[in-house]
């Protein structure tokens, strides 16, 4: 039994010795250093290369293109619950709720094409508010209530038969030109 182990051991050490000698004959010590060096420098340069990292929904992780985030570019003048988090989408009311007849219109800058768009915020009405929905208050460009026409602190469902407020959608209705 012991002899078998000894045999295996000597066979293994022979194999390792042969391959080590062979590689020492074939490659110089400098080539190993050069290869390690190039891996280290290349690794550092790889992360700095100008790759397009703007793929996916969140280019910089700030929610500019995430329609479930208050930071979504279209929500710049929004004040209310996001319909995207209440069973609807960014442009349609959830089932069982109807869009308000009147709305609030603001301008929002889209960083993707560097243009300003007209965004209309319609409230979805006739359904009780969903407490799990995301609430956002940005109201950029809004003015205090004494500037009545520029004040957004209003339930836009007031013009509907069903005045209960559910959530708000953001429709692009044109370009600010």
């Amino acid at each position: 039994m012991l002899k078998i182990f000894e045999r295996i051991q000597s066979a293994l050490s022979g194999l390792v010795e042969t391959s080590a000698r062979q590689s020492a004959r074939q490659y110089g010590r400098r080539s190993a250093l050069a290869r390690m060096g190039s891996i280290m420098v290349g690794g550092a340069a790889f992360t700095a290369l100008p790759f397009d990292r703007a793929w996916g929904a969140t280019p910089s992780g700030d929610g500019t293109y995430d329609d479930k985030s208050c930071d979504y570019w279209r929500y710049c003048a929004l004040d209310g619950f996001l319909c995207t988090t209440a069973g609807g989408s960014k442009s349609s009311c959830p089932v069982g709720a109807e869009a308000s007849l009147v709305s609030w219109v603001g301008t929002c800058h889209n960083p993707a094409d560097d243009r300003d768009y007209l965004v209309s915020y319609y409230d979805c009405c006739g359904k009780t508010a969903f407490s799990g929905a995301q609430f956002c208050l940005r109201s950029e460009g809004e003015r205090p209530a004494y500037s009545m026409g520029l004040h957004n602190d209003i339930n836009w469902c007031m013009s509907n038969a069903n005045k209960g407020y559910h959530c708000t959608v953001a429709l692009v209705v044109g370009v600010a030109e």
Binding site: A77, V102, G106, T107, E140
Partner: peptide, 28 residues
């Protein structure tokens, strides 16, 4: 003036101005 005011001051399209200032209540 802030950025929004600046954008609106530079608007010249009557349709866009209608959309921004009137369509909310008078509708599109």
């Amino acid at each position: 003036i802030d950025g929004h005011d600046k954008v609106i001051r530079e608007m010249t399209s009557a349709k866009s101005l209608y959309m921004l200032k009137c369509s909310g209540c008078h509708r599109v």
